[in-house]
Structures are given as structure tokens and as C-alpha cells.
Design a protein around this nucleic acid. Structure first.
Length: 823
RNA sequence: GCCCGGGUGGUGGAACUGGUAGACGCGCCGGACUCAAAAUCCGGUUCCCGCAAGGGAGUGAGGGUUCGAGUCCCUCCCCGGGCACCA
């Protein structure tokens, strides 16, 4: 048999898996269903090494679960809408569809070349007319249910991308996550998904998910639940008494227990009632302040710095603290946000540092209402302690005082318990061409009119020019723009905004269950069979955006009766794999440091690349390309080949007949291998699984070269088992060797099971310690008794030397692993 | 500031529940084979002292619990990530 030649065997097997439909799966397959999904990729061209890592992990699992007897759903699709294709069109004149379709072909081919297997019959792309149709269909369903609305709001505009962005797409430093440009705030009318309606459910639902803690924490932070109270501060008249002819200012607080310490109140400069509530003698200053705030960039405003005395202005109006009955000044300040809570706050300088700073800057009184500890030397005290200066709350601790103050507000009828969320509604409209059109028209007489379901899909016209105008070409396409109102038949203008591409990725995993359905996005039966996804795999960069939007869509579709009622979460288990970096930095097209897997596959083969990916690091961690031990892995596969093909050098020919002790040892090691690899696959410990296979191979080489030679049956069983457990990792070489050895298809074989009886060791190396330091190792029977182990340990010459004639003070025996002699 | 990860040889990492620290790979060193090289096979490789036997030190720092700590607890330092004027 010839030497190992990956270039010869890999294409053969890749073709075979397609021809044999090995990984095609029907919805009535009798095997237990198991759904493995790697996040569908954006088709930017051929795969880069990061893709390869991602899809190798998924592929391993697909193959492993298949061998375990599951009917595995392994689909792949393409997140094919998006800005890069449109930007490329502006540069080169090539239509985004042409560009995208070509890239999908390249990426698909790369995925096949690394040996990743999918049910290609189920493939889909966001820009398929079918897919567009149902993305729009879902939009209309949400519209009917009030989960989509159009509103004017301050939104983030990215000058680089020439479109608005969702909150989630703006990074902490105010820049766009795509282009890196500083986002600008603009007041625009846009489309929103009402994800806030699900804030509480999305938060609580995290508890039941088998996801990395890190991701759950990130979502919890993002949703940001605050529990407290909302109540109204009446406007004061000139005598400081509450006015009843005019509504008060509602405020939200998480510390109602400190309300007696409220010495002023603050509204956001954008609050709708600013003008109404500004006293005439303060109007000029207030207006000057509002102008100054408007000039300040969002990032300036949100960064914590800045002198406190420039941050606010007195409105001249007073409000009443309902707890103390005192009239207190009403300020405006730039740090109070219109978009959170009620856009107005009560200020308690004694227990809030921002309020403290503000009070010092404006000479406002500070009253402590929580007794700080004796050794406290800070300013505002935010910890727990007995209430003081708080009348009927005095003496109560924080939790009791919170409850008491909320009860009082409710009894008085001026406030109530309230929970607020940081999460904002999802801005879904984009002023770009290459996305899913929003299926709505604007009619002069009927207003905003959703299209009837029968008119779907609203496609993208192909005859458009891509010019760097900063405008979507749809705006300049009269045929697209001008249409008829489906309500009155009069002239109407089509919505030219398209949807955020995260809308497409919010339901693709559902479509995979029933990808050719022409009536509905999917049938309930198909979802009941496959969903939730048993194992979802993707990058941690999607921890908030995609993973939260997809959860929202799944819950909403379930509530609307489109998806099964019981389907509340799309992804039961999530694995987030790390990135591949280059020289410690990100790998990207723009840096020109992408590693092309094509070259590596040509030089060493796809299996060697896969093995090096598995071996180099635990899959959850980031890895530098420089650390990939490609040579070592290629060397090992050569070793495996020579072993299994029977061309490895041997001291003596194989024996038959009765088994020797060495044969039994190899046999036991083989069963331990099965046990080890199974548990390592189950806990995603692929790097140690590779190590285990290498160790076992080394052991087999030593066995073969021993003086009396290997036993034929023992060796054959060991090698066959090694090929079986390695088949999910390096599928081509194992398939080829298995076919040569057994004439069958290894990927149709059952996963081996270890014989429990053979996992039990006869003898074990027992460690003997003196004062916790290892002094001797003794080979003992695995079932050795305490007393015997102790006796053996004490009899050891090395132990005796350390005892120096003294009797041990204590002996701890943990047979058969260890005895510790304490002197 | 708050919340998650993480810090182990020259190097990527291993040690899953407190019990042989450094598996496996890379690199390096040596041996076999060869005219030679490559490939292959075998062996060595935490550091320090020692020819060796052996001894000592050692998992970011310091303390603690324990017969025994990389692993548990406390204090702190460093790196990565998330949230952050959210009331």
C-alpha cells in the first residue's frame, strides 16, 4: 500500500459523502433527532482559518453524534445580505447579487474541502426570494401584533455606513461596530421591533439555558433590570404647597428608601415639559444651557468627566418632595437621559455620588438618610445601614425601608413599585439597498399601509446604479418607489429602507427545519421535531446582538402561534469558540493577514489542518495562528497511516494463539481509549482527545516493536478502535484506512463502547509520601486494603530513610493511590 | 467603579471531583538507519546543586485551611472581555 497522500484521498471521500447522501436527513428519519448548528456565515469569499476552526468543531459533533446513532440535522446557509457586498458594488459596479452568489460558491467549496458535511438540500441564503418573502411575512405578523412600529426617536447614524444603527451595533466608545466611525445622534423616523415587550422574559429565560456564563452575564447586563419605584413630584406654588391645577413630574428611583434625603430634582434637557416648567426669569439661561448641551457630542455627554457646574441649570421652578413635604428646586442636567425611566430623577446627594457632586457644585443641601459605618470617610454612602432623618423610616435597614416607602407611595396613591430595563427597542430599518425590503407603502389618503401577504415578496430591482451618493439606490428607482396603495388603489410610495441583516439571522435556524415550505416560513410539526437547536456553535462576538434578537423572534413567533407554543428558546446549548488571531491581533481582510486554508490543505491535507485546530488549544479560547502545530499533526497522521496500513516497521511478525500479558495490557488500553475519547468529546476537550490518540499510538508502536511481536487480533482491534474514535476528527484518513482494512464505510459504523470490566486496572502505582512529599512509588493490587498499603509504605527503604528511626506520628492511607506518612 | 474569564517549563497547553505538577505537541539535545542528507524509529528535556545515588526549589505575589493546595478561603498585582452618568 502506498504512503499517506491526502491530496488523493480527500476529494474522493468528500465526493462520496455527497453522492451517498450520508448526512442528508429527512424529517421522518427514524433515528432520535439531534440538531447541530454552526452560525451561518457571511459569504465574504473563500473560507479563512477562523471559519475553518468554527466549522471543524461543528463537523466533529455532527459525525460523532451520527456514529452514536442519532439522526443529525446539519444544515448550512448564508447570511448573504449586508453592507460589504453593496460597498463592493459601488467600487466595482458588480451587482451585489452577482458578487454574493460567487462568494457563496467559493465559501461552500471551502467548507467541502475541509471535509465539513451538511444536508445541502436544505441550504438557504438570506437573499433568496423565498427567504425574503417569509422574512417579510414575519414582519407583517409582528406588525399586526403591534411588535413593529414606526417612530421618531434620537437614533445612531453611522456616516461611514450611511445608515442608522441599532443600539447594539454602537460600541461603548460611541463608534460603529462595523466601520469604526463615530456614530452621530440624529432625530429620525425609523422602524422598531418592540423587543422591550420581552425584556423580562428574555432576562428570566436565561436561567434555564445551558450557555456559557459569560454570555448569559453579557445579556443580563444588556437587558439591565432595575427594581424600584415610580412616583410623582407635584409642582410647588410660590408658598411651596403642591399645585393641583397642573400635573407633577414622575420620577423613577431604585432607592425609594432614601426619599427623605431628596433635596432637588432633575429633568433631562430634552424632557417634553422643559419649556412649560421653566420660570420666566430663568428662561434665557435655561435656553442657553439646552443649546450648549445640543452642541456637545453624545460621547462627550456620556463620558463621566466634565466640571459638574457646567452640567446643569436651575429652572426656577420648585417641586414638592412628597415624603418630607419640602419644596425643592427643579434642575436640568445633561446626565439625565430622556430614554431611561421617566426622563426625570429625584436627587439624593447623601446616597448617590453624582447627586453629591452636583449638590456641591450648585450649593444644594445634603441630608444623609442612611447611617454610614463609623469608619466611613467617603462622600455619598451607597451601602446598607439604618435609616436616619427619615421620620417613619428611621431605624429600618435598606430592604425594609424600600418596602415601607413603596407601600406608603401606593397607599397615598402617588406612586407604585416599578421595574425598569436598560434594553431599548430594536431599530431595524437601514437606508441601504442590499437587505430585505420592508413590505410597507405610504399612501396619501391611507397613511402607512402594510402590504397584503399575497403581494410578497417585495424584491429588490436589479436595474439600479450603485453610486457613492450616500443614498440607497431604491430612492432613485421610480419603478420601485411608485406603486399603488393596496387599500384604496391610489398612488403610494414604497418604503425604501431595508431591514437590518440581524432580522434575517433571527429566524434562519427555524427555516432549516422545513426549508422548502411554500405556504409558511415553517410548519409547526417540523419545529416540534427539530427545535430547539441541541447544540449551537458560534463566536462570542454575537453574545448580545444575534443571540438576543433570535431569542426575541422565537418567543414572539411562539406567542403569535406561528411557532409551537412550547418553543420559548431557540438554542438549548451554546458553545462559543474563540477567534483565530495573527501576531496577537485580529485577523482581517483589511490587515491583509488572512491565512488561506487552501494552501495549507494542498501542503498537508484537510485532516492535518483539522487535527491542528483541535490539538492547539481548548476550543473556547482565542488562538494565534503561529501556535498551530501543523507539522506535528501531519507527522502524526503519517504515523497513523503506517500503523493502520501495516507498513510500519516491526521487530517481529504478528502472533496468533493465546494472549500474553502484553496483549491484555494493550487490550485494556484500547478500552480505556474509548472511555477517554468519549468523555472528552462530550465535554469539548478536543485538545486532550488528540493527545489521548497520540499517546495510544505511541503505545502501539512500542507494542509492535517489542521482542515477541504483537498479537494479530489485539493489534487489529486496537487499530480499528483508534480509527473509529478518530473518525470525527480526521474523517478522510480514517475512512480510507477503514475501507482498506475492512471494506466498509467508517462513518456508517457505530461508536464503540468500552467494556466496563476491562476498565478496571489490576495493579496501580501507589505513591508513598512523607510529609506530603513523594518519596517512593510502589506497584500494588488495585483492591489493596488500608492496612496492607500502610504496611507496604512503612516498609519502603526510602520512607525508612526519611523516618530516621522515629515512629510516624500519623499515616493517611488512601489506597490504592496514595499513602502519606506524617512524622 | 461593577460583573465575568484567565495568569503553570524555551513554547501551545495537561492535571475532569483537593492526592505523582508539567500528559500530548512544538522546539532543542542525543542515539539508530544512511556514503551523506531528508524521511523514519528510539531515547532525553521545569530550574538549581551533584559524576551519580540523591537533595532542594517550583503553578502571578503574600497569607490561611488541610496529613496533603495549581485546585478551597482571604488580601493584592497583572492580562483579556462585558457593562458603565441607567437614577
Amino acid at each position: 500500500m502506498d504512503g499517506y497522500d491526502p491530496a488523493a484521498i480527500e476529494p474522493k471521500w468528500q465526493q462520496r459523502w455527497i453522492d451517498d447522501a450520508t448526512y442528508d436527513i429527512d424529517n421522518d428519519d427514524p433515528r432520535p433527532p439531534y440538531y447541530v448548528l454552526s452560525m451561518y456565515p457571511y459569504p465574504s469569499g473563500p473560507a479563512h482559518i477562523g471559519h475553518v476552526r468554527n466549522y471543524t468543531f461543528g463537523d466533529l459533533l455532527v459525525r460523532y453524534r451520527t456514529m452514536q446513532g442519532d439522526g443529525v440535522l446539519s444544515p448550512i446557509g448564508f447570511d448573504s445580505f449586508g453592507l460589504p457586498a453593496e460597498n463592493a458594488a459601488i467600487k466595482t459596479g458588480t451587482h451585489p447579487r452577482v458578487h454574493t452568489d460567487a462568494n457563496i460558491e467559493r465559501l461552500s467549496s471551502s467548507l467541502r474541502r475541509i471535509g465539513a458535511v451538511y444536508d445541502w438540500r436544505r441550504t438557504l441564503s438570506s437573499h433568496d426570494p423565498d427567504y425574503i418573502r417569509f422574512t417579510q411575512w414575519i414582519f407583517l405578523k409582528f406588525y399586526e401584533a403591534g411588535l413593529v412600529y414606526r417612530a421618531t426617536a434620537p437614533v445612531n447614524w453611522c456616516p461611514g455606513c450611511q445608515t442608522v444603527l441599532a443600539n447594539e451595533q454602537v460600541l461603548a466608545d460611541g463608534t460603529c461596530e462595523r466601520s469604526g466611525d463615530m456614530a452621530q445622534v440624529r432625530e429620525l423616523e425609523q422602524w422598531f421591533y418592540r423587543i422591550t415587550a420581552y425584556a423580562e422574559e428574555l432576562l428570566d429565560g436565561l436561567d434555564g439555558l445551558d450557555w456559557p456564563n459569560r454570555v448569559k452575564t453579557m445579556q443580563r447586563n444588556w437587558i439591565g433590570r432595575s427594581e424600584g419605584a415610580e412616583f410623582t413630584l407635584p409642582i410647588a406654588d410660590e408658598n411651596g404647597q403642591p399645585r393641583h391645577d397642573i400635573g407633577g413630574i414622575p420620577v423613577f428611583t431604585t432607592r425609594p428608601d432614601t426619599s427623605f434625603g431628596m433635596t432637588f430634582a432633575v429633568m433631562s434637557p430634552e424632557h417634553t415639559r422643559v419649556s412649560e416648567l421653566t420660570a420666566d426669569h430663568r428662561r434665557a439661561e435655561v435656553e442657553a444651557f439646552i443649546d450648549a448641551v445640543a452642541e456637545r457630542s453624545e460621547i462627550e455627554r456620556l463620558s463621566a468627566g466634565g466640571p459638574a457646574d457646567k452640567r446643569g441649570v436651575d429652572t426656577g421652578t420648585r417641586v414638592v418632595n412628597p415624603f418630607s413635604g419640602e419644596a425643592i428646586p427643579l434642575f436640568l442636567a445633561d446626565y439625565v437621559l430622556t430614554t431611561y425611566g421617566t426622563g426625570a430623577i429625584m436627587a439624593v446627594p447623601g446616597e448617590d455620588q453624582r447627586d453629591w457632586d452636583f449638590a456641591i457644585a450648585y450649593g444644594l443641601p445634603i441630608i444623609r438618610t442612611v447611617q454610614p459605618p463609623d469608619d466611613f470617610d467617603g462622600e455619598a454612602y451607597t451601602g446598607d445601614g439604618p435609616s436616619i432623618n427619615s421620620d417613619w423610616l428611621n431605624g429600618l435597614l435598606m430592604d425594609e425601608a424600600k418596602a415601607a416607602s413603596i407601600n406608603w407611595l401606593e397607599e397615598q396613591g402617588i406612586g407604585e413599585r416599578k421595574t425598569n430595563y436598560r434594553l431599548r427597542d430594536w431599530l431595524l430599518s437601514r437606508q441601504r439597498y442590499w437587505g430585505c425590503p420592508i413590505p410597507v407603502v405610504y399612501c396619501e389618503s391611507c397613511g402607512t399601509v402594510p402590504l397584503p401577504y399575497d403581494d410578497l415578496p417585495v424584491g429588490l430591482p436589479d436595474d439600479v446604479a450603485f453610486m457613492p451618493t450616500g443614498r440607497s439606490p431604491l430612492v432613485d428607482h421610480p419603478g420601485f418607489l411608485h406603486t399603488e396603495c393596496p387599500g384604496c388603489g391610489g398612488p403610494a410610495r414604497r418604503e425604501t429602507d431595508t431591514m437590518d441583516t440581524f432580522v434575517d439571522s433571527s429566524w434562519y435556524f427555524l427555516r432549516f427545519a422545513d426549508p422548502r415550505n411554500q405556504e409558511l416560513p415553517f410548519s409547526q410539526e417540523a419545529l416540534e421535531r427539530w427545535l430547539p437547536v441541541d447544540q449551537y456553535i458560534g463566536g462570542v462576538e454575537h453574545a448580545i446582538l444575534h443571540l438576543m434578537y433570535a431569542r426575541f423572534f422565537t418567543r414572539a413567533l411562539s406567542d403569535l402561534g406561528v411557532a409551537p407554543t412550547g418553543l420559548r428558546e431557540p438554542f438549548q446549548r451554546l458553545f462559543t469558540q474563540g477567534m483565530v488571531r495573527m501576531g496577537g491581533g485580529k485577523m482581517s481582510k483589511s490587515r491583509g493577514n488572512l491565512v488561506a486554508p487552501e494552501n495549507i490543505i494542498e501542503a498537508h491535507g484537510a485532516d492535518a489542518l483539522r487535527l491542528s485546530i483541535l490539538q492547539v488549544k481548548p476550543p473556547a479560547e482565542d488562538v494565534d495562528w503561529e501556535d498551530f502545530g501543523l507539522e506535528g499533526c501531519a507527522r502524526f497522521l503519517g504515523r497513523l497511516w503506517r500503523l493502520a496500513a501495516g507498513t510500519a516497521e516491526r521487530a517481529n511478525p504478528a502472533r496468533s494463539g493465546p494472549a500474553t500479558e502484553a496483549d491484555h495490557a494493550i487490550d485494556a488500553a484500547t478500552h480505556r481509549l474509548i472511555d477517554r475519547i468519549t468523555s472528552e468529546f462530550d465535554r469539548w476537550s478536543y485538545n486532550t482527545a488528540v493527545a489521548g490518540c497520540m499517546e495510544f499510538t505511541n503505545e502501539l508502536y512500542r507494542y509492535m516493536q517489542a521482542d515477541d511481536g504483537p498479537h494479530h487480533d489485539t493489534l487489529a482491534f486496537a487499530i480499528d478502535t483508534l480509527l473509529l474514535v478518530m473518525a470525527p476528527m480526521v474523517p478522510h484518513i480514517c475512512a480510507e484506512l477503514w475501507e482498506v482494512r475492512r471494506g466498509e464505510n467508517i462513518h456508517a459504523e457505530q461508536w464503540p463502547t468500552a467494556d466496563e470490566a476491562k476498565l478496571v486496572l489490576d495493579t496501580v502505582t501507589m505513591v508513598v509520601q512523607v510529609n506530603g512529599k513523594v518519596r517512593d512509588r510502589i506497584e500494588v493490587a488495585a483492591d489493596i486494603a488500608d492496612a496492607e498499603a500502610e504496611a507496604l509504605a512503612l516498609a519502603s527503604a526510602r520512607v525508612q530513610a526519611h523516618l530516621d528511626g522515629d515512629a510516624p506520628r500519623r499515616v493517611i492511607a488512601r489506597p490504592p493511590k496514595l499513602v502519606n506518612v506524617v512524622v
